[in-house]
Design a protein around this nucleic acid. Structure first.
Length: 155
DNA sequence: GCCAACGTTGGC
DNA sequence: GCCAACGTTGGC
């Protein structure tokens, strides 16, 4: 059982969208490191923080659960789609995605500023300067501290 | 909207 | 395989 932090711009897809949909694919990741995490490491049942990037404020918005492990991102095969990539084919997929399921929405966004200010979260990847990785592993301890700070009692 | 930090591309 | 140019991310 592993823990993750996954970024998305809420203008594209937010925790509210996921709560409404209950379940969603997490397509469009076009970074090799992030892809490797999804393809090789993420397992059904893993918990992930939903991080709103480029937002007001940016921060953790809620919790979700991996409901399907890595599988080829078929949006890369569709020439009409914005995530199209000619280098990826059904035979030799280049990009992967997972499915996520809604677990909880925080009463309030936990802003990045507060994450940076919390001593128990020292060293967390999302607070590093210039951290752009959209799929990040996170320790169980950091995960729990963030849930606690957000007032979430129980997953 | 600015721009620093970072990842990727491609010429050589 | 180096590295400059370019594109993207994301906080501010």
């Amino acid at each position: 059982m592993a823990y993750w932090l996954m970024k998305c711009e809420p203008s594209a897809y937010s925790i509210d969208n996921l709560e409404k949909d209950d379940c969603s694919s997490w397509e469009g990741v076009r970074n090799y490191q992030a892809r490797n995490f999804m393809r090789d490491k993420m397992q059904i049942g893993d918990l992930a923080l939903f991080y709103h990037s480029n937002a007001e404020p940016s921060g953790v918005a809620g919790v979700m659960k991996i409901s399907r492990a890595g599988y080829p991102d078929h949006f890369a095969f569709d020439a009409e789609h914005k995530y199209f990539d000619a280098r990826s084919t059904p035979d030799k997929p280049l990009w992967y995605m997972v499915d996520v399921a809604f677990v909880a929405k925080f009463a309030k966004i936990l802003p990045l500023q507060q994450i940076k200010a919390e001593p128990r979260l020292t060293g967390i990847m999302v607070a590093q300067q210039g951290s752009r990785l959209s799929i990040q592993p996170i320790s169980e301890e950091h995960f729990k501290v963030i849930c606690e700070l957000s007032g979430l009692k129980k997953i």
